[in-house]
Design a protein around this nucleic acid. Sequence first.
DNA 1: CGTGCACTTGACAAAAATCAAATTTTGTGG
DNA 2: CCACAAAATTTGATTTTTGTCAAGTGCACG
Lengths: 252, 252
Amino acid sequence: MAAGPKRGPGGPAIRAVDPWLPGIPSRGKSRQLLSDEERAQLAKIATTVRFKKGEKIYSDGVPAEAVFNIVSGIVKTYKPGANGREYVAAFLYPQDLFGLSEEGRYVNSAKAITPVTAYALPVAALRRRLSKDAALDFHLIAKLSHGLREAQRHALLLAQRHALSKLAMFLQLLEHVQSANGKLPEIYLPMDRSDIADYVGMSLAAVSRGFRDLAAQRFIKIRDRRHMKVVDRKAFEKLAGETGRPARARSQ
Amino acid sequence: MAAGPKRGPGGPAIRAVDPWLPGIPSRGKSRQLLSDEERAQLAKIATTVRFKKGEKIYSDGVPAEAVFNIVSGIVKTYKPGANGREYVAAFLYPQDLFGLSEEGRYVNSAKAITPVTAYALPVAALRRRLSKDAALDFHLIAKLSHGLREAQRHALLLAQRHALSKLAMFLQLLEHVQSANGKLPEIYLPMDRSDIADYVGMSLAAVSRGFRDLAAQRFIKIRDRRHMKVVDRKAFEKLAGETGRPARARSQ
DNA sequence: CGTGCACTTGACAAAAATCAAATTTTGTGG
DNA sequence: CCACAAAATTTGATTTTTGTCAAGTGCACG
C-alpha cells in the first residue's frame, strides 16, 4: 500500500471525489484531478522532501511556507490537547494535500507516521500559479470540498456515543480510502493504537477493548494488530450507522 | 442580531478569515471577501429565497441544484443519525455558504432555525462564473479553507472528554462568530437545547446540566435560555482548552 | 536473544446516558 | 389580555459506558 502514482509523468497529484455531477457517476470513487500538463506545471515549483517515520514536518502556529502533496507514506495532522493528550485531526494518504493555514500560520502540526515522500509547494509560488490557471483553482476547490466532507465525517464519527460505533466507522473510513485502487481482502491500519485513540476521541485502553469486542461479537476478524477484516458486513454497517456514505437518493 | 449587509450594493456576500497572510493582520477577525463588482455579478445569477422558522431547505441525497448564501437568519445542516437522534454538522450565519455536495447530491439536510433570507446560486450558473473569474475562485478557496478549519474545530470540540469543556468550547465558537461585528456583552444562543445537544454530541439532559454547572462554578452567568455571559474569562478559556484559537507562534 | 515499547487486560471510579417526572415557556384562540 | 395546550427545558434517580491506574504480555528491533 501507499504506492505512489502508478504511471504517467510524475509531479504533484491530487485525488478527490467530485463535488459536482461527474460525467460518469463514479460511485464514491475518487479520481486524479490534475491533468499531466498541470502536474508538470506544479512540478516546476515543487521540491521533493522526505521524512523519516515519526519525524515532525511542521508545528502549529509557525508561518506556513508550503503546502504539501504526499507521494508516498502516511501523515497525521494533530494538535496538542489540554493535558498530555493529543487530538488527531486527520490521517493523510498519497495524493492528499496538507498544510492548512489561517492567516499565514499552520493550524495543526504534522508528523510522518511512516516514511514519507512528498512535494513541498511554496505558498507564494502556488498562489501565483493559481492566479494564472483557472482549471487548477477549480481542482483545488474540488479537493477542499472533499476535505471538508471528510472533516465532517470525522466529526460524525466523534459524535457517536458508543465505542464500537466509533471504531466501526473508523474502520469504514480506512476501508474506503484504501479501496480507492480496488477491493481489499482486509483493512490495513498504518497508525498505532495511540493515534487511533486520539483520532476517535477515546482512551487507548478503550480502543484496545473495542477492537477485542468487535471481534468477540463476530463483526470483524483480527489477523494481527494492523490487519482486520470485516466478517459480518451487515451488522458492521449497521453499527457504523450506514450514514458513513451519503444516503441513496430518497424522494425526487 | 442576524442583520444583513449593513450598506453597499447588496447581493451575495461571503465572510471568512484569510488562510494566507493578510496585508494587515486581522487578529482572527473575518472579513468580507467579495468586491462590490463580484457581488453584483453574482446577484445576476442569484434568486432570493425565504424560509420560515423550522422549514426544511433541502434533504440529503437529493440532487444539489443550488448553493445558498445567507443574508439573514440562522441555518443548521444535519443528518439523521442511527436511532432517532440527529447529528448537527454546522450552524450557519449571515454571509456563510451552505449546500455542500458530493457527486451532485447534497451531503446533509438543511433547515432554517430562525426565519431565513438567502440567495440561491444555481450550481450550473455558478460554475460558469467560476470558470470566468479567477478572483472569485480565489475567494471561494478562502471560504472553503475557512469551512474546513471550522469543521476541524467542531471535531476538536467533539473529541473533548468532559461535558463542561465541550460546552465551554461551544460557547467560545458562538462568541467568536458573533464578535465579528464588535465586542459583545453576552453570547446569544439562537438554537434550542436539542440542537446544541446534537452538535456537541451529548444528551439533551447533559447539556442542560452542563450549563447549570458552568454557572454554578461561576464560569458564566445565565440571563435566560438564550443569553449567557462569560464571567471568569481565565478559567473559562482554560476549560475550553485555549486551543480553540490557533496557538501563538512558538519558536521561529 | 534480550529489552523496550506497544498493546492488552483487570479492577475500580467517574462521567454521562437513560428513563421519568416536574416546571417553565411559547404560541394560540378566545 | 388571559387561559390552555403543546413544546422546551430542567431536574432526579439509576444504569451503562468509558476513563484511569496499574499489571501483565508479546512482538519488533537491535
